[in-house]
Amino acid sequence: MGIELELRVRQASRNKGRRDTVVRRSHAHGDALARALDGVSHGRLAQVDPYRDTRFTEQDAQAALPEVAALLRERTLPSEQAALLDLAAMLEVCVTTPGSSLWFIGD
């Protein structure tokens, strides 16, 4: 079981109204990210479903940043640390990119 990340931005399309465009992906830390988030029982990160897709808005991403910082202090495995740092970077881009959303792609 792994969780992959996709940063998407909503853009206008001439023929179909609005559509999401994937602007950044992270597939390198899927299993480690799932382990790092396992057991999170409160906050925004508790909403991530490892078996389904979960969408975070810019506001969700902002709320999740301190939660990731707390997890970084708790998780000691290098693979989980790397996964959480990658997640933090993606959340920060989401927060600062209007019209974006961060998708957690579950298995």
Results as ranks from 00 to 15, higher is better:
Ala46Ile: 04
Ala46Lys: 12
Ser13Ile: 05
Ser41Pro: 02
Val23Trp: 07
Leu91His: 06
Gly99His: 07
Ser13Trp: 07
Leu72Ser: 06
Pro50Trp: 00
Val48Met: 02
Ser101Phe: 06
Glu6Gly: 08
Phe104Trp: 12
Ala12Arg: 13
Arg25Thr: 07
Phe104Lys: 06
Tyr51Val: 12
Gly106Val: 01
Ala83Glu: 10
Leu102Gly: 02
Ala61Asp: 10
Ser101Met: 11
Gly39Leu: 04
Ala34Tyr: 05
Ala70Cys: 07
Asp20Ala: 12
Ser79Asp: 15
Trp103Val: 12
Glu67Cys: 11
Ser100Met: 08
Arg35Asn: 07
Thr96Pro: 02
Glu92Gly: 13
Gln59Asn: 15
Ala63Glu: 12
Ala34Lys: 09
Thr96Val: 11
Arg14Asn: 07
Thr57Asn: 04
Val22Asp: 07
Ala36Ser: 03
Asp107Arg: 13
Ala28Leu: 13
Leu33Arg: 01
Asp49Glu: 09
Val48Ile: 08
Ala83Met: 08
Glu74His: 10
Gln62Ser: 12
Val40His: 11
Ser100Trp: 03
Pro50Met: 00
Asp31Leu: 08
Asp31His: 10
Gly17Pro: 10
Arg14Glu: 12
Ala46Asn: 07
Thr97Gln: 08
Arg14Tyr: 07
Gly2Ala: 13
Leu84Asn: 06
Trp103Ala: 03
Arg14Leu: 14
Arg55His: 05
Asp38Lys: 08
Ser41Thr: 14
Val9His: 01
Val95Gln: 14
Gly17Phe: 05
Glu4Met: 12
Cys94Asn: 09
Ser41Met: 09
Thr21Pro: 00
Ala64Lys: 07
Ser100Gln: 11
Thr96Leu: 15
